Computed example of a mutant assay.
Amino acid sequence: MNELLLPLMFIVIGLVFLSAVVAFVTQLFRPWLQCFLGNAPVSLPEILAMRLRGSPVRQICEQRIKASFVGVDLSARQLEEVYLKGADVEKLVDALCQAHRTNQDIGWDDLLQTDLNRSPGPT
């Protein structure tokens, strides 16, 4: 009985470890694949770094894809910086896409400043 217990424990520990690795890789791979297929690529190390910084990877990737479809080139880094500054990423991307569609000459930095000036400061 004891002869079977040790190999069985190693198998169970191995399966738990393998499940954790698969879950972690899936969390990185899914946003990467979405961005890749949406023609707005973001590297796996960038996604890992965003996750480690606590940034909303899904939201940033979705907004990058949305901007790419309209023809606006925003990097994941720019979107994450906006999030970390406390601005509303989705609102800014929507405004920039709308400005691009209507041929208005409004820059990303202008929109960010406007949003940050409207947002209430930290309390």
Rank of each mutant, 00 (worst) to 15 (best):
L116T: 01
C35S: 12
Q78Y: 04
S55G: 04
T102Q: 15
G14E: 01
A49R: 15
V70R: 15
V22N: 09
A87T: 02
Q63T: 01
S119W: 09
A76L: 05
V93Q: 04
V70H: 10
C61Q: 09
A67N: 01
L116R: 05
I60M: 01
L96N: 04
L116V: 01
N117L: 11
A87C: 06
P31Y: 02
Q27T: 10
A67K: 03
Q104N: 13
G71C: 02
L116I: 05
L48E: 11
R101T: 05
K66P: 00
G14S: 03
L33K: 12
G107H: 13
Q104E: 13
K91N: 12
N2T: 00
V12P: 02
T26Y: 07
I65R: 10
N2K: 00
L52N: 14
R53K: 13
R30W: 09
D109P: 06
A67I: 03
C97Q: 06
N117F: 07
V21E: 11
V89A: 00
L111R: 02
G38C: 07
A49P: 01
R30H: 07
L74V: 08
Q98E: 15
V93L: 09
A87K: 04
D109F: 10
V21T: 08
N39Y: 08
K85G: 00
I13W: 10
D94V: 08
L33Y: 14
L74I: 07
L44F: 01
V25D: 10
Q34F: 10
A40M: 12
L5V: 04
Y83I: 02
K91H: 09
L96K: 15
R101Q: 13
N103H: 11
R101S: 09
L33W: 13
L79S: 04
G71H: 10
H100V: 03
H100P: 04
P122I: 07
M50P: 05
P120Y: 08
V42K: 02
N103L: 12
P122A: 13
I47W: 00
F36A: 09
P122D: 07
D88P: 02
Q78A: 12
R118H: 08
W108M: 10
T102S: 13
D105V: 06
V25R: 15
N103C: 09
Q63I: 03
Y83E: 14
T114P: 05
K66N: 14
L15E: 01
A87N: 02
A87V: 03
L84T: 07
E81M: 15
Q34G: 11
C61H: 03
P31D: 01
Q113W: 08
V12E: 03
D115L: 14
H100F: 14
Q27I: 06
C97H: 05
P122S: 10
L37R: 14
L79I: 07
S68Y: 09
L18Y: 09
P56E: 06
N39R: 14
G86S: 06
L4W: 00
L44W: 02
K66E: 15
M1D: 00
P45I: 05
L116C: 00
E62S: 09
F17G: 14
